[in-house]
Design a protein around this nucleic acid. Structure first.
Length: 152
DNA sequence: GCCAACGTTGGC
DNA sequence: GCCAACGTTGGC
């Protein structure tokens, strides 16, 4: 089993939206590296830190769980969708998504500032400035530390 | 809202 | 295959 960090703009799709929906298809990822992680490595049962960007504060707001392996992202075929991709075909879909379910929301978000200042989280991808990857692998050590020692 | 960092596109 | 131009992300 693996651990992940899923990034979302807080005012676009938040942990509260996931709580309300119970589960959702993680659509709209249009970055090859992120896609490959979803397609090849994210599996049902994996856990993910739910990260809000462009929020106050930016940081980890809760936990989600992968409940379905990668499948075609339907938004790529929808002309009216922002993520429509006219070059992708149903026979050979370019973009995939996984389904994730709500697990918990932290009482207080773990801010990016706190993440950057904690020596236990040295090497975490989200700490690197300019790290724009919206699906990131997280080590088991980092995941457990965050859940056990930083979250409430 | 600004702007640095990054990924992608396309001309050559 | 290089790289400039462009669009987007995301912290501040």
């Amino acid at each position: 089993m693996r651990y992940w960090l899923l990034k979302s703009e807080g005012d676009c799709y938040s942990i509260d939206d996931l709580h309300r929906d119970k589960q959702t298809a993680w659509t709209g990822i249009r970055n090859y590296q992120a896609r490959n992680f979803m397609r090849d490595d994210m599996k049902k049962g994996d856990l993910a830190l739910f990260y809000h960007s462009n929020s106050n504060p930016n940081g980890i707001y809760g936990i989600a769980k992968v409940v379905a392996n990668a499948h075609a992202d339907e938004t790529q075929f929808d002309k009216k969708d922002d993520h429509y991709d006219p070059t992708s075909t149903k026979a050979d879909p370019r973009w995939v998504c996984v389904d994730v379910a709500f697990v918990k929301k932290f009482k207080e978000p773990i801010s990016l500032t706190a993440i950057k200042h904690d020596p236990h989280l040295e090497g975490m991808m989200v700490r690197q400035t300019g790290s724009r990857l919206s699906v990131q692998p997280v080590s088991e050590t980092h995941f457990n530390y965050i859940v056990q020692h930083m979250s409430k």
